[in-house]
Design a protein around this nucleic acid. Sequence first.
DNA 1: CGTGCTATTGTACGATCGTTCAACAAGCTG
DNA 2: CAGCTTGTTGAACGATCGTACAATAGCACG
Lengths: 232, 232
Amino acid sequence: MRGPRTRAAAAVHNPLEPRRPRFRRQLPEQRRAALIAATIESLKRYGHEGLSIRTISAQAGVSVGLINHHFPNKDELVAAAFSHFNRELVDALKTAAARADTPAARLRAFLEASFSPPNLDADVLTVWVVFWGIYRHSRPIQRVRRETYADYVRLIRGLLADLLARAAEGGRGRGKGGVNLRLAAIGFTALLDGLWLEWCLEPGRFRPREAVALCESWVEALCRRAPGWNSA
Amino acid sequence: MRGPRTRAAAAVHNPLEPRRPRFRRQLPEQRRAALIAATIESLKRYGHEGLSIRTISAQAGVSVGLINHHFPNKDELVAAAFSHFNRELVDALKTAAARADTPAARLRAFLEASFSPPNLDADVLTVWVVFWGIYRHSRPIQRVRRETYADYVRLIRGLLADLLARAAEGGRGRGKGGVNLRLAAIGFTALLDGLWLEWCLEPGRFRPREAVALCESWVEALCRRAPGWNSA
DNA sequence: CGTGCTATTGTACGATCGTTCAACAAGCTG
DNA sequence: CAGCTTGTTGAACGATCGTACAATAGCACG
């Protein structure tokens, strides 16, 4: 032994200095939110290796034991983080679209938000990949995804439906009944997600505004060739 | 102690039975291939948890020590498995497309192969996700992906270029010069990959042939509206 | 059959994982 | 200031990870 242990030394209080607490107690709700944020940040930085109690607690600046005080186990923390992560994304896209007033402007705002920071970020893909990796074997993760993805699809369906209705009234009299809205939404989200994924994996291949243009011309083609489009 | 240890007991040879070797030696090349196959199979079954020396060696039916005899470490085995996995996929798509003789038929064959087993399989997505998870922090994985993805893009560009050339000669005289082939390939792969990903995550949402139809109508629109398409 | 090469085995080791839990202390209350 | 509640700490535990390495044994060959 070559002296007092670190902890004992730190416990000595110099009366000349103001007493500084070694930690700050927080309300469970706030601490839970902080731990969820730390989880996402840890995933962004370290990928799958960031999904560890010790890495997360270090990111949050707390001890390893605290997590199990606020969450029953690691899986519950991860599911909560996934839920928060999803909801924040969908909400951001929703409010971005809601700021515009015409269907075309709403679509453009939605696309701009999709293909610009903070969504268009390789770190965000890292987080997604980790969650996808857990997806198949984790019931809570599956449930969370099903719920928030339904919201996402609803948002996209609404955007497309408005556009198709406008195209029908102002166009050559073709009703939107000729378009399979279900398939249209599926194809549009696929194109969107595929471009997003591609950009994150290799950002140099194309610019974000090119992705927006590709999506917009897809929707234009949809509006133009509405009838006969439900053949599949 | 309640008797001889398992290993000692197994070493006793009953002269009435033919001697059965406890293992079979194999040529390094064959064993390496078997270990790579076991790695992919293990990833399909157990996802990220299948990426473990013990799980892989159990899947291959060998002991834990053998892997480090044929591969310097785990990362090299994983990179080799990733390379094999990629090459097999691209080769399968290539040969499927090569079997047809017209550009349109080649595209259809390519799409059919993309949206049918063994490619269209949630297990395959599981493998992809694991590799994506390693992607950002592993140089060998990045290199392998860059190489095989270039092949993939070349294949798709060829398919699209042939179609556009045919459309130009038989159509209204519009040359394919009006189309940005680079952007077209990017958009097409994004739609393709997005649909594939979507189906694997939730197979009930649409049928594979609907995905094929969406891709084909995208290409149709591309051929029809060739000029002015390079605006982005 | 005996010999040599080496593919293969399986134990051992240190590191790290998620979780538990007794002790500690921050901060409100009287 | 004393007492109490409880958010927080950090050591400890058993399990599992990737790797190393000495011992084993398959099998070709003289």
